[in-house]
Amino acid sequence: MDWQAARDAFQQGELLAYPTEAVYGLGCDPRNQAAVEKLLELKQRPVEKGLILLAADYSQLVSFVDDLAIPQDKRFSVFSQWPGPVTLLLPAAAHVPRWLRGDFEQIAVRVTAHEPARQLCRALNSPIVSTSANYSGQPPLVRAEDVREAFGDKIAWVMDAPTGGATRPTKIIDPLNSKIFRD
Rank of each mutant, 00 (worst) to 15 (best):
residue 8 D to W: 04
residue 10 F to M: 13
residue 10 F to P: 01
residue 11 Q to P: 00
residue 13 G to R: 05
residue 14 E to K: 14
residue 16 L to V: 13
residue 17 A to F: 12
residue 17 A to M: 09
residue 18 Y to N: 13
residue 18 Y to V: 10
residue 19 P to L: 13
residue 19 P to N: 08
residue 20 T to I: 10
residue 20 T to N: 02
residue 21 E to I: 00
residue 22 A to Y: 01
residue 23 V to L: 11
residue 23 V to M: 07
residue 23 V to D: 01
residue 24 Y to W: 03
residue 26 L to V: 09
residue 27 G to P: 03
residue 30 P to V: 08
residue 31 R to N: 14
residue 33 Q to M: 10
residue 33 Q to I: 03
residue 33 Q to P: 02
residue 35 A to F: 04
residue 36 V to G: 00
residue 36 V to P: 01
residue 37 E to R: 15
residue 38 K to G: 07
residue 39 L to R: 02
residue 39 L to T: 06
residue 39 L to I: 06
residue 40 L to N: 03
residue 40 L to R: 00
residue 40 L to A: 02
residue 42 L to Y: 07
residue 42 L to N: 07
residue 44 Q to V: 07
residue 44 Q to P: 00
residue 45 R to P: 06
residue 46 P to Y: 01
residue 47 V to R: 14
residue 48 E to P: 00
residue 52 I to D: 06
residue 52 I to N: 04
residue 54 L to C: 11
residue 55 A to C: 04
residue 55 A to H: 04
residue 56 A to G: 08
residue 57 D to V: 01
residue 58 Y to I: 09
residue 59 S to N: 10
residue 61 L to Y: 03
residue 63 S to N: 07
residue 64 F to Q: 06
residue 65 V to F: 11
residue 65 V to D: 07
residue 65 V to R: 11
residue 65 V to P: 06
residue 66 D to I: 15
residue 68 L to R: 14
residue 68 L to H: 14
residue 68 L to W: 13
residue 72 Q to D: 15
residue 72 Q to G: 07
residue 72 Q to R: 13
residue 73 D to M: 12
residue 73 D to Y: 13
residue 76 F to E: 12
residue 77 S to G: 10
residue 81 Q to R: 15
residue 81 Q to Y: 06
residue 81 Q to F: 01
residue 83 P to H: 05
residue 84 G to A: 04
residue 84 G to M: 04
residue 84 G to F: 05
residue 85 P to G: 09
residue 85 P to S: 07
residue 86 V to T: 12
residue 90 L to Y: 06
residue 90 L to C: 11
residue 90 L to G: 07
residue 90 L to H: 12
residue 90 L to M: 14
residue 91 P to M: 15
residue 92 A to M: 12
residue 92 A to K: 10
residue 92 A to W: 12
residue 93 A to H: 02
residue 93 A to Q: 05
residue 93 A to E: 09
residue 94 A to W: 08
residue 95 H to T: 12
residue 95 H to E: 12
residue 96 V to Q: 03
residue 98 R to P: 00
residue 102 G to H: 06
residue 103 D to V: 05
residue 104 F to V: 04
residue 104 F to M: 15
residue 104 F to E: 15
residue 109 V to D: 06
residue 110 R to P: 03
residue 110 R to W: 00
